[in-house]
Amino acid sequence: MSSVRRYSPQEIEELVAKEIPPTGVSLACRSLPTTTTWNNRTVTVDRVVKTSCSHNCYDTCGVLCYVKDGRLLKVEGDPDHPINRGRMCVKGYTYPQRLHSPDRIKYPLLRTGERGEGKFRRLSWDEAFDWLGERLTALRERWGSEALAEYIYSGNREFLAKQISGRFLSLFGASKTVGSF
């Protein structure tokens, strides 16, 4: 017989009510800071934005972003978030370097060399949309709408944009990507 005592459902309900914060109400109890330290000096920042990190690890940390002169100065964990309690991870803290990295793809590019050569030329967004529009219409005429497929996973695991791409693809009649890694 197991020697471990079992909580009755009522005890569990009381436990949840006692130990877990209420639902549906903001748990923020600190006002957002207006200054921070940087390079051993105190600097005032334009704003501190509360958001969350949508990388594919299951903690979805609460984040405080310090923005100064339109640039992400630094990132800290949200102290009011019950899970990460003001702390993030080695990757989270490097975000200013990633967001403002000079290596980012800056504008649309169209391939000029062979596939895999990596040679591209710059394109405006209008030209890119026109190019993609022609290809999609041609594809639907020649192969049918199911010849289009979307490859998406959890580079940014947030759900909102996937629904809008889902709406377009279902209107277009493309194949639907399912399953997970």
Partner: peptide, 14 residues
């Protein structure tokens, strides 16, 4: 050994 202190310090002090 997650090295978070390293990137946190580097970001704080540029």
């Amino acid at each position: 050994g997650c090295h978070a202190c390293e990137t946190a310090c580097k970001m704080e002090n540029d």
